[in-house]
Structure formats: C-alpha cells, structure tokens
Nucleic acid binder design. Structure first.
Length: 264
DNA sequence: CCCGTGCCCTGGCGGC
DNA sequence: TGCCGCCAGGGCACGG
C-alpha cells in the first residue's frame, strides 16, 4: 500500500521517464478510475511530476492530473499498448510509447484540475502537512478535542499527510505510544517524537526504495524496507526492544500491530 | 464539528 | 482438486 516513501519513489522514477513527453491522448479503459474525464488531455506535454502527500501530480501544460494509487496502483512503461486486464488507463505518447496504470483492486483514482485552482479544490485543499513540514504545535492543535485513538488519527490525511497503515504502526512503536491512546491525551513530548520518528522512518524507507508488501513496485523496482519493519506484520513474534510478543488487533477496521509492554 | 460504519474491488488463502 | 467465504484497506459518503 503506497504511502509517502513509496509515492516518493514512484515520482522520482516518473520524473526520469516521462517529463518532456507529449501525450497524444489518455485512454480510460475502466470508467470508474477517471469517471468524469472528457478527453481534455490531447497533444499536451508533461512539464513536471510532483508529490503531494500520497498523491502524484502530473503537470500537463495548464492542467494538473491527480493520481492516487490507493492500495495496489502501479505504473508500467511500455513500447506498445498492453492488453493486461488490470491496466485501467494509459497515456499514449506521441513517440509511440505508453505509460500504463495497473491496478488489480481498481481502488486507484484519477482527477483533473486546472493549474489555477488545483490547490484550492478538494482533495488537495484539505490535505494536512507532511511530517517534514508540520510542527508539534500544529499537530497538537489537530489532536485537541479528538477522542479517537491515535492510530486512527494518524491515518487521517487532513491531520497529517503521507502516513498509511504500515508506517502508522512503525511510528507509534518507535515513539512508544499505544495505538489505543486518545489523540487529545498526546503530550507535547510525544507529538515531537511522532514527527521526528515519522521523518526518520520515511527517510530510511526512501533509502531502501519503499516497502514491498504483497504487490507494490515502483515501475518494476521492488522496495526493501519490509525487511526493516519493527512491528508491522510481526504478530506473535518477539518485540525487537523487549522480547514481549507483538500483538495484532483491529482499530477502525485496520490491522494494527503493537507491543503492549513498550507502547503506553 | 466529531465519530462510527459500510462501501468500493478482487486475488489469495484457509477450511472442508 | 474444487469451491465457498472471508480478508486486505485509503478515502469518502452517510447517519447519528
């Protein structure tokens, strides 16, 4: 499931591969992946590719094309059109090559905005800052009055953006905070830890090309950070800090791994 | 505003 | 071997 480090990795690859390419047209092969598309992108050039939280932004002349990979979305470059049934959309370039969007679960989404207002409309207008930009005061302000468990709050992209289910577990483990703790009861010291550890974990994951669990890959390159996960997917295995067995529960429908001795 | 629930979607897996 | 049913989960639409 692509989170900040995986999206970062994909964007770096896309920059190398598609900036400067002319899009002859975009073919939507599965309607719901880009349901209100009206063929606006025609003979236009990709000027830039950027990351915004978990979103990939393609800057195409006066348009910004938003792409969210959700669970299993991935990009594949090819010399000719692919007929794989999991390819939901492709960019047909004027040089004859293609950028294909592949998504088995069909959860990913595309959305088109004008460059003048892409930051002033949903979903980007509602996104919180990433761990690299947010301050502990801003975070505490978001936690204030929230009675929900901290694990759930860290997944809310309007609170802090870029964290998904895997890294939320890793951040809370490293910060020694229970996933059940009420967000409003997080202390200043703990907010600082959450931010610092999120940055450290993201940096290390980016260095390792992201986390590959199940199917993630960045244009064919699998990540290696799964080998460095401290709690996620380690149910009944010894805690790397204290040896206590890692527990697995569900919080708001999300699989949550934690050490009930280290995390208070 | 805040919170909880259910939906989207399908490959893979456990159980029998 | 085959089939059934359930699980995985990010973001959003609801209803309370």
């Amino acid at each position: 499931m692509p989170e900040y480090p995986e999206v970062y990795t994909v964007v770096e690859k896309l920059k190398e591969l598609v900036i400067g390419k002319n899009i002859k047209k975009i073919n939507v092969l599965y309607k719901n992946v880009f349901y209100d598309y009206n063929g606006e992108i025609k003979n236009l050039t990709i000027k830039d590719v950027r990351q915004f939280g978990k979103y990939i932004l393609f800057f195409i002349d006066n348009y910004v094309l938003l792409s969210h990979l959700r669970m299993e979305g991935k990009y594949i470059i090819s010399d000719k059109a692919l007929s794989d049934k999991h390819i939901l959309l492709n960019f047909e370039f004027s040089d004859g090559s293609y950028l294909n969007y592949h998504d088995v679960r069909k959860f990913g989404k595309f959305d088109l905005r004008r460059i003048e207002n892409y930051l002033k409309t949903p979903p980007l207008m509602d996104l919180g800052k990433t761990p690299y930009k947010i301050t502990y005061n801003e975070l505490l302000e978001k936690f204030y009055k929230r009675t929900t468990k901290i694990k759930q709050i860290l997944l809310e992209q309007d609170v802090i953006s870029g964290i998904g289910n895997i890294y939320a577990d890793e951040i809370l483990f490293k910060s020694e905070i229970s996933p059940f703790k009420q967000a409003s009861k997080i202390t200043k010291c703990q907010a600082v830890k959450i931010i610092e550890n999120a940055k450290e974990i993201f940096d290390k994951a980016i260095k390792n090309g992201g986390t590959t669990i199940y199917t993630y890959s960045a244009l064919g390159n699998s990540g290696h950070f799964q080998n460095y996960l401290d709690v996620h997917l380690r149910e009944n295995m010894p805690c790397k800090k204290c040896g206590n067995l890692i527990k697995k529960v569900k919080i708001n429908g999300r699989g949550t791994y934690y050490c009930d001795r280290c995390q208070k």
